[in-house]
Design a protein around this nucleic acid. Structure first.
Lengths: 210, 210
DNA sequence: TGGCGGGCTAAACGATCGTTCGGGTAGCAT
DNA sequence: ATGCTACCCGAACGATCGTTTAGCCCGCCA
């Protein structure tokens, strides 16, 4: 596994990067000063720019680090839906250190965000097609839209996790997503409406006034 | 309807507020200078702080304006799910000017965001309970969690709209949400899995390794 | 042993930040 | 006419920003 901020024996360069990831995620990129990162890493402000060229270079390094990590996690993903469920809880915990940074990136419209979203969505698309062949999930009239929808809802939960936690009255942390995944599973299993016809009526009503 | 940035005959104070809403939403709070807002509104930097006391006061005014607007829209909400669907498309278009500001607020963990999320989620909860009584939707083992989940997924689509649009290859705008609402309706109507038992198996599998 | 490159610090640069201040002008009441 | 109030400008303040520069220290190679 790639280095995380929890590790103690990192290169100075990696330590700066991890502090930056934390601060950028917590306070935002513009609101975080180079001096704050330097102090947090126990180094001088000059060293930060010695290693990364500029503040933007440091951001780029953070983006790359996050992108690399998620790509590694994805590679370890099992194709079997049952087996893929096994590592899910552990993964959510493992990636907790990059959640807030990712959340900010997703609302910034950064390149990292778009590439990540595109990758996750096309991944979801192929998984869904695969499972559809096995008869596990229903076919869709709009497979691309469905995959994008599912990706967006999942990432939305990641982004809004602090609000969800506060509203539900539970401490914010990875377990919030685990808890909410039950509601998601219930929705995936049976939908929301008592009768599918109701959904179709609503969809038709929606189609009318467009 | 409350004033929107499209109106031309606003007080200087309101014009500054609307420019600030746009810039804060587009570039973020910390990255937006008072001077940029002043220039955009065609006034001096001093006037901005004359009206709002400080940059934070201006942000507060923006928060209040957004909160007021959404609250007004909510009051016009119909209780009947069918009728409520009629105004949906229009509402999404009408509130377009505050989308990016709201999106940033939701990831900032601001007070506006939390209050809004709490309101929307409890609203959803009572609507769902109401419709459940009418037999329109299935009962839930966790009504609070279900309402929070649905609220989070809906707001998640709002936040991630630019990414969705870019990935789907359509121009970013309110219609992206209208388009995606079909995928949502399909999910609400029939769920994802071909057989509800599959969802229960996955949920059980999830429960095991916690 | 002498040089040399990389990690690192301290000090300073100009730019830009939020904010303050003094004054100026138009409208309205006295 | 006078004073008051609200709206507004332009210049300036100190602080902080990202970045640059000069130089120190230490391990490695010749």
């Amino acid at each position: 596994m790639r280095s995380t901020p929890a590790d103690g024996d990192l290169t100075t360069r990696a330590r700066i990067r991890d502090v930056a990831l934390d601060r950028f995620g917590r306070d935002g990129f513009a609101a975080t000063g180079v001096r704050a990162i330097a102090t947090g890493a126990g180094v001088s402000p000059g060293l930060v720019l010695h290693h990364f060229g500029s503040k933007d270079g440091l951001r780029q390094e953070c983006d790359d680090h996050v992108a690399r990590t998620i790509r590694e996690i994805k590679q370890a993903q099992a194709a079997d839906p049952m087996a893929s469920m096994d590592g899910w809880t552990a993964k959510v915990h493992e990636l907790d250190w990059l959640r807030s940074y990712l959340s900010r990136a997703l609302t910034d419209g950064s390149d990292l965000a778009f590439r990540l979203f595109a990758e996750l969505s096309t991944d979801a698309e192929s998984y869904l097609a695969q499972w559809e062949e096995h008869g596990l999930i229903r076919p869709s009239e709009d497979p691309v839209g469905r995959a994008a929808y599912l990706t967006a809802t999942s990432l939305g939960m990641v982004v809004l996790r602090p609000l969800l936690a506060r509203h539900l009255g539970v401490p914010d942390g990875p377990d919030v997503l685990v808890h909410l995944s039950r509601a998601a599973m219930d929705m995936y299993a049976r939908g929301l409406f008592a009768d599918p016809a109701i959904g179709e009526q609503l969809a038709a009503r929606l189609e009318e006034n467009t």
